[in-house]
Design a protein around this nucleic acid. Sequence first.
DNA 1: GTCTATAGGGGGATAGAC
DNA 2: GTCTATCCCCCTATAGAC
Lengths: 222, 222
Amino acid sequence: MITAGIETRQRILNVAEHMFAEQGFAGSSLRRIIGAAEVNLAAVHYHFKSKEALLEAVLIRRVGPLNQERLALLDSYEMAAGKNGAKLEDVLTAFFGPPMRMILQSNDGRIFGKLIGRLHSETTTMFMTISKKHFAPVAQRFRASIQRALPGVSTEELYWRMHFAMGVMAHTLSCCDQLEVMSDGLCRVSDADSVIPRLVDFVAAGFRAPVRRTRKRAQRRS
Amino acid sequence: MITAGIETRQRILNVAEHMFAEQGFAGSSLRRIIGAAEVNLAAVHYHFKSKEALLEAVLIRRVGPLNQERLALLDSYEMAAGKNGAKLEDVLTAFFGPPMRMILQSNDGRIFGKLIGRLHSETTTMFMTISKKHFAPVAQRFRASIQRALPGVSTEELYWRMHFAMGVMAHTLSCCDQLEVMSDGLCRVSDADSVIPRLVDFVAAGFRAPVRRTRKRAQRRS
DNA sequence: GTCTATAGGGGGATAGAC
DNA sequence: GTCTATCCCCCTATAGAC
């Protein structure tokens, strides 16, 4: 099938995004991707060089703009807040809002959410590398802002809570279908205006939880 | 290599658990599994019939006892609490405690945690089926207890918050290594006595977060 | 830029001897 | 219960014509 030349690359990206999200990286084969995209096998290697490079291209296409938006939002909130730093809820909204809106607003976005969620539970070096390259700098920036909004929480506790928060996000991005099914349709994920505050409020409350004084931690102070 | 007959099955299970956790199901091949286990390829099909059945055997071996322990703990907390129902923190401890202790106390447990985390972000029908069979009944039971401990939260909101809570757990089970690395060794996951309360407190605070009255939800009531 | 053809390596599953 | 040998499939990557 001879189709518009310049679209080949995009069609491969679109199909690969779907397939990587649904079947995982190892579970997707280039042959099925090119079959669904109706392109030739050699086209993939011509445009992307390798399967792994194709995955990275799929990710960068969306993650780049997403992180820019996050940082821009954070900047604007901090600018508005002035010297005291931004409010915790605003920092979290800047972080969760862009990806949540993405998955809530389009079916393609939703598919991509699954891929992101998958990334977070992948421990392969390939995934770790990509994740480090594209997520770590942003996470760093947000950690500083959250720390500032929560002066009473130790750095150690903060790392834990950010870790928990990442879990909430990753799971919500990737498994919102499951929630719709499990709740028998009671929970609908299509409305960003209600889902984002739900998530932000849950996580903010977790961040603000009083620090319990365990025996271990009590000992450490003496 | 002729090794003790009755151990073959166990050795396959152990190696498969590691490999599925580290590389994913599609990313692990029977041939590499049998190579590491030093058994014959035919042995896998003799003992487990297929690759997919092997995965299910790997899961059942640990998830069965884990869920029994969860339910037993919940029973004891509810018994002790009497008519008013168990405290939220106790319900959450019954749910998170057993798997967290598992991953915190042994290296094998930690490996298995990764596998569980992976399961949660898998959307393949195979994984969905297994997850539904082994997790859904337990989740149902715990949902009832949490609902009882939080009479002020609507069923819809509760589903959302349980969903968030599952994300925290899945991510903590599977990615605790990442946290140790990212925090430069500041956060150590080896101490169950401090990690479990941390997790429980974070999630409990999230569950108790005041429900924000959005425009959407306000409209619905008028 | 696009295609065909092929190299070269694994993959899961099974039959049948021991 | 255990092993060898084998069936037949799919995989990524590349060479080279158009």
